Structures are given as C-alpha cells and as structure tokens.
Amino acid sequence: MYGITTCDTIKKARVWLESHDVSYRFHDYRAEGIEADKLNGWVGKVGWEKLLNKGSTTFRELPEADKQALDEKKAKALMLARPTMIKRPVLEVGERLLVGFRAEVYEEAVGAN
C-alpha cells in the first residue's frame, strides 16, 4: 500500500486490511518518495488522470501555470516531484492496482487473490 501516514483514507484502508487479516507493506511517499518506473507502471495500468489527485492540498497550492495544459508527461513530472499529489491509497494486489479506498472493492480484490 502506498500513501502518506496522515491521510484519513489511508487510515481507513489500513484498518480494513488489518481487520481482515490481510498482510501488507506500507510505503510512505513523504519518507520514501516514488520511483519513476513504479509510477510509469501505474500510469500504464490506470492512466495518469486516475492517479493525479487534483483535490489534494499539494496540487491546489501549485502555481496556476503548473496546473494548466496537463498531459501525461507533465502529470508524471508533478507526481514524481511531489508524490503527495498521487491519489491515496494505491494498493497493489497481484497484477491489479486499486486507487482509492472502497471496502467492497477491497473485499472483491482480496477475495479474488
């Protein structure tokens, strides 16, 4: 699971995983960053639009010029420079990639794994 420890959605997802005895490793973007290869793989699976959290404080605080004319290249550069702009949590379940937390989606993904 990828995210930041202070995120309320991360906290909910971690509680859900722990209450369902699902083991996981937590990767904190603030402490560990994100590798370009990892981000490129995610973008290839779900698209940059799903990963870039335009509602995040980090994104909202960007200069207007940085928010304009977004495309894959620019979005990836922003997320690599400031990983807290990546939607949370990102959970890798086998070959699947879950972005955000919904208990029913986690239930289906963990049950299918």
Rank of each mutant, 00 (worst) to 15 (best):
E72Q: 15
E35N: 11
S23T: 10
I34V: 11
E61G: 10
G3Q: 09
T84K: 11
R96E: 15
A31E: 13
G47C: 08
L80H: 05
E61V: 10
R102N: 10
H27T: 09
R60E: 05
L97S: 10
L80P: 03
L51W: 05
L70V: 05
N40W: 13
A65N: 12
G100M: 06
V105P: 04
L70S: 02
Y2I: 13
G47F: 06
I34K: 04
K73S: 12
P63D: 04
T58Y: 03
K12A: 15
G94L: 01
L62E: 04
N40R: 15
L91W: 09
S23H: 12
L39W: 05
G3D: 09
D8A: 06
E104N: 08
K11F: 11
I86Y: 03
K45I: 10
M79N: 05
L98M: 01
K54P: 03
S56T: 01
V22Y: 04
P89K: 00
R82Q: 13
K67Y: 11
I4D: 00
A69N: 13
V110A: 01
P89A: 08
N40F: 09
D66E: 14
F59I: 02
D66L: 13
L39K: 07
K38R: 15
E72T: 13
H27K: 10
D28N: 15
R30G: 09
K87I: 01
R60C: 10
R102D: 02
K67I: 08
K74P: 08
P83N: 01
A65W: 07
A13R: 02
T57D: 14
R60A: 14
A75N: 09
E61C: 12
G111R: 08
Q68L: 14
D28K: 09
A13H: 06
I34N: 05
A75M: 10
R30C: 06
C7S: 11
G33I: 00
G100F: 07
L51K: 00
V46R: 02
V22W: 03
K50G: 07
E92I: 12
W42G: 10
L78M: 11
A109D: 05
V22Q: 10
E104F: 06
T9K: 08
K38S: 12
L17F: 03
F59L: 01
P89H: 05
E32R: 07
D21A: 13
I34S: 02
E35Y: 06
L17G: 08
A13M: 09
A75T: 04
K45R: 15
L52S: 06
M1A: 15
A112F: 11
L70G: 00
A65P: 08
I34W: 04
E32L: 14
N113W: 15
A65R: 07
